[in-house]
Every structure is written in C-alpha cells, then in structure tokens.
C-alpha cells in the first residue's frame, strides 16, 4: 500500500496496519496436481487467517471489546474479511481468482479442486467491486465492517459491539463525504455486504465439504475457525 491519502484517522490507521499480501507456498507433499493446488490454497488461507487475527486487534475499538465478543466476531466474520481481499485482487484479471500473486486460479482449475461454486460466487463479488471502483480506503473499511457486522450470536456486551460498528460507520461516512463526494456511495458499499456474506458462506461450506468428504487435511487454526461456523 502507498501512503494513506485519507485524512480520516480510523481509515488511515486501517491502511497503515493492513498486512502485506502473502505469497503461496507450493505444497510438496503430493504429486497430484489438483490436490497440490488445494493444499497450497489451504495453507495460504491458514496463514492469512493468522494475520487477520493480528490485524483485527488494530482495528480501532476492537481491543476494547470483551474477549468473548472478539472471538465471536472473528469466528463469524473471518471468511468475509479474507474474501474482500481476494475479490479486490481479482479485479481486472480476466477470469482468474487471485488468492495470491503466485496463486491464480481460473474456472477450470477451481472446478478441478472442487471449488466450482465458490468460483462463480467470488467472480460475482469481484465484478461487483470492480463496477464500484473501490479505493484502498474503502477496501480496508469494508474488511473491518465485515468483522464488526458479523451478527455473532450471542453477543456478550451488545452496547460495546454497537459502538465499535458505529465508529467504523462514521469513518466511512466521513471519508465518502470528504473524499469521494458521491451522495449515495456509503450506502452502496453497505449494500454490497449481503453479497459478501453469501459468498463467504459458500466458501466455508466448500472447504468443510472438501475436508469431510475428500478428507483434505487442514491446519488446526483453519479447521477450528471453519468448525466455529
């Protein structure tokens, strides 16, 4: 990321703490091409998840929540937060999904590893973001809002979670009013959240199916978070 252009403190902070993109580590445990791709992807997701948990602690207001609420929000919203990044990186790449700079999967590759449904859903989300021409500021804010808005149940301290959400909403509104000047922009971004949740639900279902039906081994953190869904 380049230096933050936003004068909004919350969004500038989110930009500064955004982790650098990870590279995929090619799995060497099998000669089966599609299995190799899938294991490489799962390893990448596990490492991204670890970074996301560290990043969440830097979202203004997150660390003030109770530990129970922090856990609930992450358990509900982690896949949405990760997919914001995938969809954003996959813009203007033709028909590929860019999970990492060195892990780009087209439709046929996704189908071969059992992720055909996820491919369709993620391309839909990618096209949506592309048509909205998102800025980096909007991407990091959407990511934080996806976590804050994860509708975790039960919530330990609903007021604190509400204040956390309100803080991010205010930041988005201020940014849109001062930087983009489009009257309905903040609302349009919020209206893209249902598609993000739908896509994340499909992703979670797909990885759980691969784990249970095809016995794909998953890292402990990734499995724990998938199971929490």
């Amino acid at each position: 990321y380049t230096l933050p252009a936003s004068r909004n403190k919350v969004i500038s902070h989110l930009l500064l703490t955004e982790p650098s993109p990870l590279a995929a580590n090619q799995d060497e445990s099998t000669n089966d091409g599609s299995l190799k791709t899938l294991l490489t992807l799962c390893d990448l997701l596990n490492r991204e998840l670890l970074l996301l948990i560290g990043w969440a602690k830097h979202i203004p207001g997150f660390s003030g929540l109770s530990l129970v609420d922090q856990m609930s929000l992450l358990q509900s919203g982690w896949m949405e937060a990760l997919l914001v990044g995938v969809a954003w990186r996959s813009q203007r790449t033709g028909d590929e999904l860019v999970f990492a700079g060195n892990l780009r999967l087209d439709e046929a590759q996704c189908r071969a590893v059992g992720l055909a449904d996820l491919y369709v859903a993620l391309r839909h989300l990618t096209c949506k973001y592309q048509s909205m021409n998102l800025s980096q500021e909007e991407v990091v804010t959407l990511k934080a809002m996806a976590l804050a808005n994860s509708d975790a149940d039960p919530v330990d301290c609903a007021d604190s979670v509400q204040r956390f959400q309100d803080g991010l909403h205010e930041a988005l509104q201020e940014y849109e009013a001062t930087q983009r000047g489009e009257q309905h922009r903040a609302g349009r971004l919020l209206m893209s959240l249902p598609l993000l949740r739908q896509t994340a639900d499909r992703a979670v279902a797909a990885f759980l199916r691969l784990h249970r039906q095809r016995r794909i081994p998953l890292h402990k953190l990734l499995l724990e978070m998938l199971d929490a869904k």
């Binding site: 670890l50 948990i53 953190l221 724990e224």
Partner: peptide, 20 residues
C-alpha cells in the same frame, strides 16, 4: 473456550507457543 483454543490463545497474546 476449550473448543476454540487457538483463537483464544492468539487473542490473549499468549506467550506460550500456539500450535497452528
């Protein structure tokens, strides 16, 4: 908490090694 051990440890900034 026991069921979600790793996330719990990561959020608590545990100094003990976390088995991922």
């Amino acid at each position: 908490k026991e069921k979600h051990k790793i996330l719990h440890q990561l959020l608590q900034n545990s100094t003990s090694p976390v088995d991922l």
